[in-house]
Amino acid sequence: MNPLIRFFRTKIYTAVFLMVFILLVGVVGYRLISGYSWVDAIYMTVITMTTVGFGEVVPLDQGSKIFTIILILGSVLIMGYALSIITEYILSKNNIEELKYRRMQKQIDSFKNHVVICGYGRNGKQAAKKLLAHNKEFVVIDKNREMEERLQLDEVPYVIGNANEDEVLLQAGINRASSFISALPDDADNLFVVLSTRQINKNINIISRASHESSYDKLKFAGANNVILPDKIGGDHMASLVVVPGLMEFLDNLSIVGKSDINVEEVAVEKLFSSGELKTIKDLDLRKKTGCTIIGYKDEKGDYTVNPEAELLLVPNSKIIVLGRPEQIESLNSQYNIK
């Protein structure tokens, strides 16, 4: 629960308790001091607390008058307190959302080397789910105000606005981000957003969705590092399940979030040994130390080698792709202090 709502709820409960308390004091007081019936005691207490100015049921004696004075003063204080709480709550209600946005923006401003996801449709939500499973910081941009409730339910940081505007991209921290995923349904929107993002951050890794193959080269030219065609991938995947079903089932298990006994990790070679020396895959001996198997190598130019030889020299700015069970990956990260 929002702390501000909790704060007001506590004060409202206190005000209600005090009002009920003073009402009971008045009823019991008039019953015992003035000898009124229960109905007359309630009537006198209510008109005294509300100060409506009606006359007494019966003339008050000296003791009843003193009690009435005390009751009026107490009622004025308590009613004034209750009205101030209600007024403050009404005036502050509109500020609760603003305070929530400020708190979330402060969280976004603290992010560095995070991921920005543009669009929270099917593809964007799936990307967010994957990043969340890997404890990767990310921010979602979506221009549809109707999407805000879903974003709040998923408890992800977000910015509501049009990603075509540089101010919105900067609000999401695009200048500090390491990666940008453009998952908008329209290729023209993706093209414009990719172009704007590349102009703001020259070094960011941009992955864009494309609905049509004709948009592939345009998005690459605009600055996207990778362009994904969901329909093409989906069709290829379904056909592969017919041609090589066993292999595809194995590959699917590698990408399952939170349920797989297998995992794949990409690790920079600088995290495995000092940059002042060069080692081979055999020298690392990761299989013996952690149980992980090196299944791929990405050199400093970005070229991949599948199932690299043991004598392959690991040069600076290159990466290895390791395969292992979650506990083996955890052992690797623990031994080499990889976060």
Rank of each mutant, 00 (worst) to 15 (best):
P3H: 12
P3Y: 10
R6F: 11
F7C: 01
T10S: 01
I12K: 00
Y13E: 02
V16C: 06
M19Q: 13
L24M: 10
V28T: 10
W38C: 01
V39S: 01
V39F: 03
I42G: 02
I42L: 14
Y43D: 11
M44L: 13
V57G: 02
V58K: 14
P59L: 07
P59M: 07
K65V: 11
T68P: 02
I70T: 00
G74N: 01
V76E: 02
M79L: 13
L83G: 12
I85G: 04
T87I: 09
T87M: 02
S92D: 14
N95E: 12
E97C: 03
E97I: 14
E98N: 13
M104N: 08
M104L: 14
Q105G: 05
I117D: 06
C118S: 15
G121P: 11
N123R: 14
A127D: 06
K130V: 15
K130E: 03
L131W: 03
L132H: 15
A133Q: 03
E137Y: 04
E137D: 04
D142T: 05
D142Q: 04
K143R: 11
R145P: 10
E146V: 09
A163M: 12
A163V: 14
E165D: 08
L169Q: 04
I174V: 15
R176I: 11
I181V: 15
A183C: 10
D189S: 08
F192G: 08
L195G: 14
I207K: 05
R209D: 02
R209E: 03
S211P: 00
E213M: 14
S215I: 08
L229Q: 06
D231Q: 09
G235V: 11
P245V: 01
E249C: 08
E249Y: 09
I256G: 00
V257M: 01
N263R: 02
E266N: 12
K271M: 12
K271T: 13
S275E: 08
I281H: 01
T293H: 07
Y297L: 07
D299I: 06
G302E: 02
D303P: 06
N307Y: 06
A310L: 10
A310W: 08
L314G: 12
S318W: 08
V322H: 07
V322L: 09
L323C: 02
P326M: 01
Q328P: 11
Q328I: 08
K339D: 15
